[in-house]
């Protein structure tokens, strides 16, 4: 089966201490275009480090990362900035700017990168993004400190969607949320993916249930390497003892 690849990672290694220890130990991974890929694994297996490499925030110690067929290491700063504009990120705690209202947060990427638009036009787009992210209009002029955790995630998602990105990355979006809010955020990610045709979604998560509910393609990391990748069915039918235990018992924090 051949499918278009959005992100292609080859033999990616990363060390933060000059080569004494490696967080990523030669990772090979292909993220298909237009699908939801869920990257799961224990804490400390390198999920967030991998995401920062995809965004060009970290430089690999060795190996290569291609996004839309272009090698990140060959890109100039301006090209990386242009590439980042094609990506939207929802951070673990939403990372909203706390001196801006929900509406201003959602309009911020437009203010920076669509300067040809008038303020009213930017606000109209931001209102639309907030609406499809499910935030009630009465909260548009509230500061992040006045919003609940779920509302903040919705504003974060609206901001991530503001420039109609081709790739949406979610960094542990449900960590620390209660089960009802977790389900709400999962549904939000799913509906967003379905309503934005052709968008590639990459979800980094601890949550195995979310991986099975959302993922077209699941990648399991262990000790800086890809332990297994495939469809949810592949994970259920696997013979790999480690993965079977993981699937049967769910993820526990490594002691």
């Amino acid at each position: 089966m051949s499918q278009e690849i959005a992100i292609d990672i080859k033999d990616l290694k990363k060390s933060f201490d000059g080569g004494k220890t490696f967080i990523l130990k030669g990772m090979n991974l292909k993220i298909p275009k237009g699908k939801i890929t869920v990257i799961i694994g224990f804490s400390g297996t390198g999920k967030s480090v991998l995401m920062k490499h995809i965004l060009g925030l970290h430089q690999p110690t060795s190996g290569s990362i291609k996004v839309f067929g272009r090698q990140l290491s060959d890109m100039s700063n301006e090209e990386i900035i242009k590439l980042r504009i094609k990506m939207g990120v929802l951070f673990q705690h939403a990372a909203l700017f706390d001196d801006m209202t929900a509406l201003e947060n959602a309009a911020f990427p437009l203010k920076e990168h669509r300067r040809e638009l008038k303020k009213e036009q930017r606000e109209e787009i931001a209102r639309h993004k907030l609406k499809i992210s499910g935030l009630d209009e009465i909260h548009y002029h509230k500061l992040p400190a006045e919003l609940s955790g779920g509302m903040r995630k919705r504003v974060g998602l609206a901001r991530a969607l503001a420039l109609d990105p081709e790739v949406l990355l979610y960094d542990e979006p449900t960590t620390g949320l209660d089960p009802i809010l977790t389900e709400m955020v999962d549904d939000l990610m799913y509906s967003t993916h379905r309503s934005h045709k052709g968008t590639t979604s990459v979800v980094i998560s601890h949550d195995l249930h979310a991986a099975f509910r959302l993922g077209d393609h699941i990648v399991m990391l262990d000790k800086g390497l890809v332990k297994m990748e495939g469809t949810p069915e592949d994970f259920i039918n696997t013979d790999n003892e480690f993965v079977r235990r993981f699937v049967n018992k769910g993820i526990r924090r490594k002691e």
Partner: peptide, 18 residues
């Protein structure tokens, strides 16, 4: 410092803002 620890500076970078 607060913007750094709450990932707001990372958010700026990934939005293509220096």
């Amino acid at each position: 410092g607060t913007m750094r620890v709450s990932e707001q500076i990372d958010a700026l970078e990934v939005m293509g803002v220096n």
